[in-house]
Simulated scan of single mutants.
Amino acid sequence: MSVPSPGIAYLLIVHSQPNHLKRIIRRLAHPDDHFFVLVDKKQHAAPFQQALSGLKNITILPQTTSIYWVGMGTVEAELALFRAAFHRGPFAHYVLMSGADYPIKPMPYIRQFLLSAGKNFIPVHSRLHPGGEAHFTSRFTRYHFLNNDYLNPRGAYRNHRFFRQVRRLLEKYPIPRRMTRSRTIYHGPTWVSLTHSFVDYVLKTVSRQPNELAFYRHTYCPDEMFLHSLIKESPFATSNYYDFERETDGKNWLGLFYADWHTPDVVLPKTLDTADFNALKESHPHALFARKFDEKASAGLLDRIDEYLLV
């Protein structure tokens, strides 16, 4: 008897749109694949549990992580999902997604591509330190206190007079962090897909070298640096799909995820609507998913994707 091929683990970090989450899972469902869902601790889990009731191959993780914009909570959520999926696996690929994503290729196409790829999809766009872009250096050369409702610019108390003043003081008088020239930091988008071997490497690294994770605890947007820096300094560097320093596919710098970072005068990435359908239709063959979607503003586009792209 032959051993079944490992499947795909979809790791979803969500804080809203439970019905859209159900729609994502129904479009990607396959008997060999599994969905791991982590709901932001600040949100009620019941609507998500209700929306997913009756669906198969789903694990909803305990709500242990509060997730704040550009804070450390996203990295903590990633690691919780990696651990849960790794211990249930092995899986051929671990696809990290948000609840604002959606497939733009049919499920059989996605499975065939990922199961035959044998690569990690962690787009590495730039080196931030040493000798990187000065615009980004404040992300890690000063302390940021963002993983809370008080000092995060999008937290629950963002408009409270006292905390606005504290944020202004920290901007004017930043607290410096000690940096070494030997630490190299790279940058790229959050949403990635990893092989089983690299997930094993990540989990062993954070277990054996706690300082590696601790370095990012008071940085700005650590989810755009942690995995990217780790893979570049690892034996898996040559297995990465997009790397600005290597001979890789430079046409698809967002890896598996299409996003619009170019439309002016909107919050980026742009919330996609029916005007974006042709761009999704003509997107790179390796753009398997797109973001970001709002179940109301993107309703017409989602229906067109279902009717024309996922068949």
Rank of each mutant, 00 (worst) to 15 (best):
T64W: 06
N120V: 00
A80H: 09
T190H: 05
A85C: 12
L81K: 02
A156G: 12
F215I: 01
L21E: 14
F198A: 04
H286C: 01
Y102S: 05
A100W: 05
E247V: 04
T64M: 08
S229T: 10
F82L: 08
I175L: 13
Q17V: 04
A117Y: 09
P6K: 05
W253Q: 05
P269N: 11
M107S: 14
V202I: 04
S2N: 14
A29G: 07
P222G: 09
L310I: 07
Q63L: 05
T263Y: 01
P62V: 01
Y173P: 12
H286Q: 08
K56H: 15
T205H: 04
R177S: 13
F293Y: 10
A84H: 12
R127N: 13
W69V: 00
D33W: 05
R139C: 04
R83I: 08
H286L: 06
Y201E: 09
A100F: 02
A275C: 06
R111W: 06
M97L: 14
L213Y: 13
H20G: 08
D40P: 08
T271A: 10
P108S: 03
S283W: 03
F226H: 00
F226I: 05
S207D: 15
S298D: 09
S126T: 12
M225S: 12
H187K: 09
V14T: 15
P269Q: 10
H125R: 04
M97R: 01
S138A: 10
F215W: 13
I24A: 02
F163S: 00
F113Q: 08
R178G: 11
T74E: 13
T205C: 09
P4Y: 03
Y201G: 10
V124W: 07
P264E: 07
D273F: 06
I58H: 10
A84L: 12
R167M: 06
K105G: 03
T238Q: 13
E282S: 02
W253F: 07
S16V: 03
F293A: 02
L288E: 00
E78T: 11
T59M: 01
R181V: 15
N57W: 02
S182H: 09
I8D: 13
R177V: 08
G300Q: 10
A9Y: 01
P90T: 08
D32M: 06
V124R: 03
H34W: 08
A9I: 05
L12T: 07
A297I: 11
V39A: 03
V199G: 14
K270I: 07
A51L: 03
F163E: 06
S53D: 14
L309A: 01
Y94P: 15
N148V: 06
W253T: 00
E133D: 14
R177A: 07
V14D: 14
F236K: 04
I110L: 04
Y242D: 04
Q49E: 15
F162G: 05
L169F: 15
L114I: 00
Q43R: 15
P6E: 12
K292E: 10
V37C: 10
N211A: 12
A299R: 10
S5H: 14
L213S: 07
D40E: 10
K22L: 02
L11W: 07
Q112N: 11
I231N: 11
D32Q: 11
I24N: 07
M179A: 04
P174K: 03
R167N: 02
I25L: 06
N19D: 15
R177G: 11
A77M: 02
